[in-house]
Design a protein around this nucleic acid. Structure first.
Lengths: 145, 145
DNA sequence: GCTGATCATCAGTATTACTGACGATCAGCG
DNA sequence: CGCTGATCGTCAGTAATACTGATGATCAGC
């Protein structure tokens, strides 16, 4: 009935497989834990990016997030439609929009961050706190280049 | 000139960000190191999956790899077009194709695996061997559920 | 020898991101 | 001032990708 799930050791030992599936598993957990909130994991990342560093152009923000400038337009359309951020014409450079997080946006961010924390905790459930920290540390050092 | 790259600590501390970008970085390295070979990283995973466990249906293989059955068709089309695998009608169940890795496929797999090893080593360049093993171990334990 | 299920495949569709172009605006230069 | 070239946000079109549903062939159970 069950059949043999699992890709076999050859593939399971590959770093690409491990990273990809750990990421997908976390995505699934995010979907669950963010289900009753107003934002998805993608929009959460935008709010996190904007937090505290508000005055910058959409393109700068897109660059820092690693998405295309045209993708950021849609992302902000969605967030603006929910009243979580607002586009304001930059007085100093009227080509630009200044993106500000609204009060509702800050509330949504706080809730979503808590939900994301739960998702992360669930992913790391079988690891000790020290091991979780170490995983973060190792990944951060890989990216620091 | 340089501008401020980097997403800021709020986002960089998120596990999703770390996993995603570590994976993307490895993908880029794979693209580089597999550039002069016949297979891409996707096809390499198929060959790894097939290695040693050959007799199974395309659907079983697709399930173990975590891709759709229709996606596997295209993947095998490509590999078969390069002569690296062959579809053979299963004598016992003629609905099925038995996928066999050809000699050329085994040679390509060996070379591609070596290239993938180089990509992994480059990704982990700033980590000690013990730390690399630990990263693999932690990720594997996350997925073992 | 029927009936329903499974296999590989394909056509159509949905999703997603990117390319190129647009009008508006800016900085620099005379 | 008035040009020129560059940058901003936006949008339409396109490319890449995976999935849905259907098809013909085949199988298992009865």
């Amino acid at each position: 009935m069950d059949g043999d799930e699992g890709p076999g050791p050859e593939l399971q030992g590959r770093l690409g497989y491990l990273l990809k599936h750990a990421f997908f598993q976390l995505e699934d957990l995010h979907t669950v834990h963010l289900a009753d909130g107003p934002v998805n994991v993608r929009e959460l990342s935008v709010l996190l990016l904007l937090e505290g560093r508000e005055p910058e152009s959409q393109q700068q923000a897109a660059g820092r997030l690693g998405v295309d400038r045209t993708t950021m337009v849609g992302l902000l359309d969605s967030l603006e439609g929910k009243g979580l951020v607002a586009r304001q014409p930059d007085a100093a450079d009227r080509r630009r929009n200044v993106i500000v997080v609204t009060d509702a946006g800050r509330r949504a961010l706080k809730k979503a961050k808590a939900a994301s924390d739960r998702a992360e905790r669930e992913l790391l459930a079988d690891l000790s706190p020290a091991e979780g920290r170490q995983l973060r540390d190792l990944l951060a050092r890989i990216l620091a280049r």
